[in-house]
Design a protein around this nucleic acid. Sequence first.
DNA 1: CGCCAGGAAGGTC
DNA 2: GACCTTCATGGC
Length: 290
Amino acid sequence: MRNAIELPKQFNFKAAVTDHGWYLLPPFQANDDRSVLKRVEALSTGKIVLLHITQNQNTLMIETGGKQTLTREESEEVVRKVNWMLRLDEDFRAFYQMCSADQNMQEIVAENKGRLLRSPSIFEDIVKTIFTTNTTWSRTIAMTTNFVNHLGERYSNESELFTFPAPEAVLKKDKTFLNKSIKLGYRSDYIYDLALNICNGVYDLEELTNPEMPTEDVVHKLKEIRGVGPYALSIILMLLGRYDFLPVDSEFKKHVKNKYFAGELPPKSQLQQLYKEWGEFKFLAYWFDK
DNA sequence: CGCCAGGAAGGTC
DNA sequence: GACCTTCATGGC
């Protein structure tokens, strides 16, 4: 089955997919030349589909694998989720205007960059962000792969592909399982508590996707999540389309130390002042400064 | 063995 | 606020 979405005039498929590392984490996968993005996704009806997403001129083609036929509602859900993942509705005009005025950011406008891939659900993005803290990228891939393969739903009988687990699937196991089998280490507590608070209705993550909500309110709610500190907060806000906060981590420090401070790291207060002229686009300014 | 990896929590002062 | 220690795990 096939769905088509008309793309914005300024759109770069490969950049949107690969300018952030999420496409390397299951259930996302890309082909060798990164012209196709795939993903197993569970729809709210319970049907599990394999999405095959690619660009054909000014149209985004979404094929759902196999012989499956989708109802109208299921098709609409697929389109809605792909729209969110690739940020097709996000308005980059103000950012591009600032880039146009900066000699070092001309490429961003010329190549229609700025969109960074995100997961269909904010739960998945928060979990994956916690998997990036205080560890290496290879461990992040390992944790995500274990998490998906042990707790996700299988695409089909012959398949080794799985969905990203719902919070309910996490609660079917205990923290020891998360620790020993999925090897989340001390993050087991964070992930279990997050899933528990979602299922209990303590957290309403969907409201965080509402663009009308003031950023300070989103920040306040995200800070309540154990495992989400300043770095993770910045990443999650970026994934929600809010670029006000810098992800000041070891990678950020390495970058600015070499590029702006001749190998000598300045005090923390000074780090937070970097890119401040970019206002609500500080994250993107840093991200594309690399 | 110790140190660190795209940190964060919980504690002290 | 600024600092300190501890937290699993794996790579080196």
